[in-house]
C-alpha cells in the first residue's frame, strides 16, 4: 500500500466512525458519550484530510490551494483503481 493509499484508508476509517456516531446521535441527541466520540472522530478525520490535501491533492474543492492550477481535475477519482 502506498503512503497515499494508507492515508486515505485512515481517513475512511475516522470519517466512517464519525458518521456512525452522527447517525447514532440523530436518534440519541442527548447522549454525551456519543457526542464526545463524534467530536474526537471527526476532529481526527479533519486533521488527516488536511494532511492528505496538502500532500496529495484536494478532497473538497475548498482544498485547492494552487495559485496556478485547478488541481480538482487531477487523478485519481474515487472509482479508479
Amino acid at each position: 500500500m502506498t503512503e497515499r493509499e494508507s492515508l486515505m484508508k485512515q481517513i475512511m476509517e475516522y470519517s466512517f466512525a464519525a458518521h456512525e456516531w452522527n447517525l447514532y446521535l440523530d436518534t440519541h441527541p442527548t447522549s454525551r458519550m456519543a457526542l464526545e466520540y463524534f467530536k474526537n472522530m471527526s476532529k481526527k478525520a479533519e486533521e488527516l484530510k488536511k494532511m492528505y490535501a496538502e500532500k496529495f491533492g484536494p478532497i473538497k474543492v475548498s482544498d485547492v490551494n494552487s495559485d496556478t492550477e485547478w488541481t480538482w481535475v487531477s487523478e485519481p477519482w474515487p472509482w479508479s483503481n
Binding site: 486515505m8 481517513i11 470519517s15 466512517f16 484536494p58 478532497i59 473538497k60 474543492v61 472509482w79 483503481n81
Partner: peptide
C-alpha cells in the same frame, strides 16, 4: 450538498 473526492469504503477489484 458538497462532494468529497473519496469513497466511503475502499474498493479494489482485480
Amino acid at each position: 450538498w458538497s462532494y468529497h473526492k473519496k469513497l466511503q469504503y475502499p474498493i479494489n477489484i482485480k
